[in-house]
Amino acid sequence: MFDCEVNVAKSCTELTQILIEPSARILAGGTDILPGMRKNSIGKPITLIDVSQLNELSYIREHEGQIDIGALTTHSKLITSPLLLQHAPALIDACASIGSTQTRNRGTLGGNLCNASPAADSVPPLLCLEAVVTLSSHDNQRQVPLSDFIIGPGRTCLKQGEYLDHITFAVPQKHTGTSFMKLGRRNGMSIAVVSTSVLLRLDQQGNIEYARVAFGSAAPTPICSHHAEAALTGKTPSAQLFSEAAQAMRTDINPIDDLRASREYRLHSAGVLLQRALQTAWHQAEMDLR
């Protein structure tokens, strides 16, 4: 038994009305908030808002060169999406690495973002895709870059009465490769010790025209490494270049010592992972002739 009230939202309109209550917290997949409530790690009092009936928030759509993902889309739905397999394989790899089958069948993309964990696996690939989140309230809708949405461990810029409606990113152009790499303590059910995601776009000559590099579990929030991106842009891909990017990113990340790993170990493995991720993204970009 949980020590809380439970309200069931029957529509998005109703959701915005109930959300005005200061103690309200949205219950989506429940894979994080329910264990948190059992451990008393979530402040009280809480009124849970069950949004399981809002099927209209579960979708993956493409229109006018953009992909929209409804906030209540589960990780299991994401990783079996042919659209995402074609355009954002790194996001699929990231969501496939979350928890177990049971977790992925319940956990949602919106939940992973709003939970705002520094280790949130879906965030680095979405940062590389320059995703934008759409936030809705009873009288307003606004769009915020994902990089501004997560502002600290467990903290987002969601205001009282607002909910995350959907996530949008542009379909990557031709000659683009994306990748995601995660180091965990074991294969199943692991929280990232460190993770990285990369997006590389090549020009006609095969040089790097555009680069995005992001890390998870390497700072208070998942972050981009602008120094690594600058080191890569305009250059010819090579193992040497990737090694330089791995050096450059050290000025951007700031990992901590915690129960999963030390700061030093994270700094080192972030560099190793980044070089592997760049290799993968590079080969993918070379073959990407969509």
Binding site: F2, V6, V8, L27, G29, G30, T31, L34, P35, R38, L48, D50, S52, S76, G99, S100, T101, Q102, T103, N105, R106, M189
Partner: peptide, 25 residues
């Protein structure tokens, strides 16, 4: 915690941890 899977049941044919499903859901 959803860590062990001993409460796995099928919800609409999908494996889920029953400890992490509220009855309203």
């Amino acid at each position: 915690d959803g860590e062990c899977g001993a409460c796995t049941i099928l919800l609409d044919g999908e494996a889920v941890n029953a400890c992490l499903v509220l009855i309203s859901q």
